[in-house]
Amino acid sequence: MIFSYEIPLILLTLATAAGAIWVKDLISSVLLLGTYSFFLSLVWAWLGAVDVAFVEAVVGAGLATVLFLLTLFKTDPKDTRLRRPPPSLATLIVFPLLGVLLLYAASDLPEFGDPNSPASVHISPTYLERSYQDTHTPNVVTSVLMDYRSLDTMVETVVIFASGIACALLLRRKEK
């Protein structure tokens, strides 16, 4: 590899995430959040999860940004500036401790791409071997999502259905 792009990528992801929190103007914050989603999708692609990267790029950087912006245009322009109190002492103590705890726990995780990790030996090999014969679908992710785990996907669709109905009920208050 001539140019290692992983380090700048992770730095940009962290910088945009921090910027989306720090920036005072809400519209800038929304745009930074979209940028963050785009860099995050590049991270997914780097890790080999192309389907997840696609969803992240389209939903996070595209649709969510548009919906956030429409919401901001609908609300009062005065509300687009935030006034934040400084973080309390408990926050400053608890959150670094939580981070240290998570890093400590992360050292027990299996190596990335380890063929003997539990995720790789349990049922994934069966899916990878039998997916094409069973379903004639070259993309294993799709065959797992829509065939082997179809019931889960159906309930996810129910979630989208319910969210659409809830938005309509809350936002369209009265119709004649």
Binding site: A53, V55, T137, N139, M146
Partner: peptide, 16 residues
Amino acid sequence: QYGPGGGFVGGVILGA
């Protein structure tokens, strides 16, 4: 079925 994509992403792009 043949590459990255699927119902969810396709639907979001159509909606966009």
